[in-house]
């Protein structure tokens, strides 16, 4: 990060190479597969890092810091277009359901339903779920990103998983 502060192109290339793809997919999932918006957020995130590299919190790992920034951007995005997002998700999901072949139908139905249930959650719960299940982060990392205690994250994750599992039980294969 100190190299980036001095304007090092190679340092920036290294950061971009390492984190751009995971972050883009994180945005992509969190924004219900809205690729254009996901790319916009990824651009804004790296632009922040370029313009204010000194804002890097030395106590955190790069990975944690990036996802903290990304989570905050997601929350802001949710606030700005909460209603629009809900409507778009349902439209996309309905369209996709007709295009599925029979082999993937069961799995896709489950994913759509999961996404729909996640969209009903508050932004923090949705971010927490995706960090755990999609990004496979540890509880400690999630606690740092969410600025919360590990015990709190564990309780919330367990309760959330149980709640979602109950709602998605009908999609279980026989």
């Amino acid at each position: 990060m100190s190299l980036l502060t001095k304007g090092g192109q190679s340092a920036f290339d290294e950061l971009y190479e390492r984190y751009s793809k995971p972050l883009l997919n994180f945005f992509y999932k969190m924004l219900n597969n809205d690729r254009e918006k996901a790319e916009d957020l990824l651009h804004d995130l790296f632009l922040k890092i370029i313009e204010k590299p000194d804002s890097f919190d030395g106590n955190k790992k790069f990975n944690t810091w990036f996802y903290t920034l990304a989570s905050n951007m997601i929350k802001n995005e949710y606030r700005s277009r909460k209603i629009k997002l809900q409507h778009a998700t349902e439209t996309i999901n309905q369209t996709q359901e007709y295009e599925l072949n029979s082999e993937r139908l069961d799995r896709q139905l489950f994913e759509n339903r999961l996404q729909r249930e996640l969209n009903k959650l508050d932004p923090e719960s949705k971010i927490m779920f995706n960090l755990r299940f999609s990004e496979e982060m540890s509880v400690k990392q999630i606690a740092e990103i969410m600025d919360s205690l590990e015990g709190t994250i564990k309780s919330r994750l367990f309760r959330l998983t149980r709640q979602l599992a109950g709602k998605l039980a009908i999609y279980k294969p026989n």
Partner: peptide, 10 residues
């Protein structure tokens, strides 16, 4: 079931 399927979606 949720653990297995949710991780598979990534």
């Amino acid at each position: 079931e949720l653990h297995i399927r949710a991780r598979a979606t990534r």
